[in-house]
Design a protein around this nucleic acid. Structure first.
Lengths: 334, 334
DNA sequence: ACAAGTTTCGGGAAGGTTCACGATAGGGTC
DNA sequence: GACCCTATCGTGAACCTTCCCGAAACTTGT
């Protein structure tokens, strides 16, 4: 194992002191041009690289780092969120260290944790395991629903998404435009995950909003193709459906494609509404109507919490829970 | 300015030594349950957080950090690349610290640089400025074309994209399928950037490949809508065009939408080919045919270089230049 | 009760850098 | 030549944690 080249090695090689090397490297004031060149040459020859840890240690670590974990980076839902987070963090002078949970949440986290001050993300594992793997770091969870009243461990905070208002608004708008029979494609994710099916909050709010006008609900995979298949099944089993809420935009994209393939006019024959408000939804034809998560506000909330946590004594702070409202993004598909 | 709570403060508060506090925090072996609790309680009370820099300093900084800068995180081209980079980096045990250049490339870089070992990305600024702002860190550039023979500064490496083979392949395939008149929508980006227009490598390769069969070239904005407008203009000015190369997939998306709006059948009346191979291209209808950048291979090359650079003595390494080939991704739009 | 072993804890050092300040040398002024 | 000033460079300390190893305390066996 090659020993690290330190500032002292360079100093000796150049025949000067540490301090002089430091001055040369940071092109500081108080060093003659000739010795600077001499030192730089020696550093070059030895392949010297200052240790960023030693440097940050002594410069009082002014920069804060935020660890962000998303489930998958191939999913536009997460990249959109990461984009907003990145912007909000940059605005407040935080650096973002990013990782994805695709191949081992715990391993990725244990690598990320020692490098950052706070961790935020979608994890899909329980608080207890999270605490073990994060080494006591404060954690901010981004939930896909309003945080339920679960007992949070200390040091665990969350920002949830309140979809009730958005769903109500969407149903009202659909009604105003003449929709009479409301269907929904629900996610099978929970079921696959927990074994037992439990209706999602989205479904509960939707059913409450449409009441008697519900035509049917079909469960599908959380993917474009899964959404397409489920949509086709829904239309076959409940042909009178003229408005559909898709569990998310990815599935809604599949539904639009599927409708096109089946010769079903959108939004003429059936109106399709997604959830998430992906920017990707603008790129398709017709552009996707969606109940949008305001990602910038989400990011703002996250950064608010993060800064509270970073402001010393985080350990004494009670779990913070916030939620961001959704809003209807009326585009072409409904 | 509140002084930092150190391990010594906790030790004094708990009436033990540093070492014991360290043991308690890292739940190491060799400490009784009662003292552990006592220490943890004291740490909690004081709001103690171990310094990640001091810790990493002594644990010999085994984890390497890669700084990644992309132009914009809202652009799927960059997020796709970031995704591949993230996967490749995770595979080799590197952490990724991400930033975007949207609001100030230099400022973002100067924040990023002290935190990482190598920097890679799309920058849009000259080597000289980059060197100043990165403090001598080695840099890997991702180029949108094959690295030209510019004089690279030492410490600057690059991976470029070789599009010639992909474009040739695409033109051949289009010919085989009956295309006779070839148009292109070119990017106006260079022109806006440098004032003076210079044909892109894509255009040069394309014109060389189609030869006499070129119907016309129109310049457009590098965006969905810009692509749509330019495509419409191309079809109006050169109505005999039956195959179009769009400068990139984003613009191609606009072209497909525009064609739809104009009642032009794709690919029946005109075949549309994009460049980049965005995963987003699969989500639209018809799915986008594209000359794809193999992002995983790009990421592999980048990580290869990065690991070479990290392996000591980087300063003595001559600029490395690599290029990744493109390949034709035949989907529905051509 | 004593020896031996085990558990628990502390002191000194290391890790690589920057900061504050003191030391040295050379040049100019009188 | 004494004095001061400035430009340049070096020494000790600090930053905060973990590792190594020895000391102390406690447990067990006889």
């Amino acid at each position: 194992m090659a020993k690290r080249v330190t500032i002292i090695d360079v100093a000796e090689a150049a025949g000067v002191s540490r301090q002089t090397v430091s001055r040369a490297m940071n092109d500081a004031w108080g060093i003659s041009e000739s010795t600077r060149r001499k030192v730089l040459e020696a550093a070059d020859r030895l392949g010297y690289r200052p240790s960023r840890f030693a440097r940050n240690l002594v410069t009082r670590e002014k920069t804060h780092a935020l660890g962000v974990m998303v489930a998958s980076f191939g999913n536009p839902y997460y990249t959109d969120i990461a984009a907003s987070l990145l912007a909000a963090a940059a605005e407040r002078g935080w650096q973002i260290m990013l990782t994805a949970g695709e191949s081992g949440v715990e391993e990725a986290l244990s690598l990320l944790a020692p490098q950052v001050d706070v961790i935020v993300g979608h994890f899909g594992i329980a608080d207890e395991r999270l605490r073990d793997v994060c080494g006591g770091l404060p954690v901010v969870r981004m939930e896909s629903e309003v945080p339920h009243d679960a007992e949070r461990l200390p040091g665990f905070h969350s920002v949830g998404l309140d979809m009730q208002s958005g769903i109500q608004e969407a149903v009202k708008e659909l009604r105003d435009r003449g929709a009479r029979r409301f269907g929904m494609v629900e996610s099978g994710h929970f079921q696959r995950y927990f074994g037992t099916y439990e209706p999602s909050a989205r479904r509960r709010w939707y059913e409450e909003a449409v009441g008697e006008a519900l035509s049917g609900v079909v469960i599908g995979d959380e993917s474009i193709s899964g959404g397409g298949r489920a949509f086709a099944e829904l239309m076959e089993r409940h042909p009178d459906t003229d408005a559909v809420l898709m569990f998310n935009d990815l599935m809604a994209l599949g539904a639009v494609q599927s409708a096109h393939a089946l010769g079903i006019d959108v939004p003429g024959r059936v109106r399709i509404v997604g959830v998430d408000g992906l920017s990707l939804g603008e790129a398709v034809d017709p552009p996707l109507t969606s109940i949008a998560l305001d990602r910038d506000e989400l990011a703002r909330h996250v950064m608010d919490i993060v800064e509270i946590l970073a402001g010393a004594d985080f350990a004494r702070i009670d779990p913070i829970e916030r939620s961001v409202p959704s809003r209807l993004l009326w585009r072409g598909s409904a």
